[in-house]
């Protein structure tokens, strides 16, 4: 399978990428291409221009930023997974990156591409949601910061405007327990369901992978924990407000049940 023809340009800066996006409304940014190229082979995506930002090395970094850690959008999963700084300051992010796909995928795919793609089955989005991460986007009129709660808007859709580039993701330093539990049947697969849980301000925040059109916060579970419920009782509320898909791997009922089991296990781990 080979993608349909397209024009190929290489952006030499973020501003150049923005200008090129404005020139061709049907154009798309190419980071690692590990979501975009498979979609283009299947003609699910057919951009007229590919604007390659893969060489903007100044967007590939992980550095301390006050009480946060800033991750450049073009940082590859492999570099996130093996970052000493993240392993110490925000280990759940490093761990989640280490369970994305397989080593070959992690050598190419980027954290920015994973988020901008807006796939509810992606591993990083639910983790970043639970962490209340911030997304930094640059567009023609400058930079803005988008909270995680407003970033993932619908299936494969985000708050990014068509002429905006995601440049950075900021995650808080965490000190308490954390868990990211990804359930799949074969090593390489996407999560049938995934659960992210982190301790924060005395409570627990919980994110769900592949339980709806976007990654979701399990707010019912969070409230239950805040009002003193034990993990099993809180986990019973894991599917509140979700709309899990049904596919060849699992029915929606199965996913609801699985979410409850994984949330209970994650809470036990985090509160231990």
């Amino acid at each position: 399978m080979i993608p349909a023809p397209f024009d190929y340009v290489r952006a030499d800066s973020v501003d150049d990428a923005i200008a090129r996006l404005r020139e061709d409304p049907e154009g798309k940014l190419l980071a690692g291409g590990h979501s975009l190229l498979p979609a283009m082979k299947l003609r699910l995506a057919r951009p007229s221009t590919l604007i390659d930002i893969g060489r903007l090395r100044d967007l590939a970094y992980i550095r301390e930023d006050g009480d946060r850690v800033a991750i450049g959008a073009l940082t590859r999963h492999h570099d996130v997974a093996t970052s000493e700084l993240l392993r110490q300051a925000c280990p759940i992010v490093a761990h989640a990156a280490s369970v994305v796909g397989d080593p070959q995928v992690r050598h190419v795919g980027t954290i920015g591409g994973s988020c901008a793609h807006g796939d509810p089955a992606g591993d990083l989005p639910s983790v970043l949601l639970a962490l209340e991460a911030e997304f930094v986007a640059r567009g023609p009129s400058g930079e803005r910061t988008i909270p995680a709660s407003g970033f993932f808007t619908s299936l494969f859709e985000t708050a990014l405007a068509p002429d905006e580039v995601l440049t950075e993701i900021r995650v808080p330093r965490t000190s308490g327990g954390w868990a990211y539990l990804k359930f799949n049947r074969r090593a390489i697969d996407w999560a049938i369901v995934g659960v992210a849980a982190v301790r924060a301000n005395g409570g627990v925040r919980v994110g769900l992978t592949n339980m709806g059109l976007t990654p979701l916060r399990a707010t019912g579970v969070e409230e239950a924990i805040a009002s003193g419920a034990d993990p099993a009782a809180a986990a019973a509320r894991a599917d509140e407000g979700t709309a899990p898909p049904a596919d060849a791997f699992a029915s929606d009922e199965y996913r609801r049940e699985l979410a409850k089991v994984l949330v209970r296990r994650a809470l036990e781990q985090v509160l231990a």
């Binding site: 190929y8 291409g33 190229l37 893969g54 190419v108």
Partner: peptide, 27 residues
Amino acid sequence: CDTSTCGACTVHLDGESVKSCTLLAVQ
């Protein structure tokens, strides 16, 4: 597989394994 799954197409890019069916030559 031609769909990024099987790894038969694995080569090294700057010394690291990648699936060459999921990269453009221009990359």
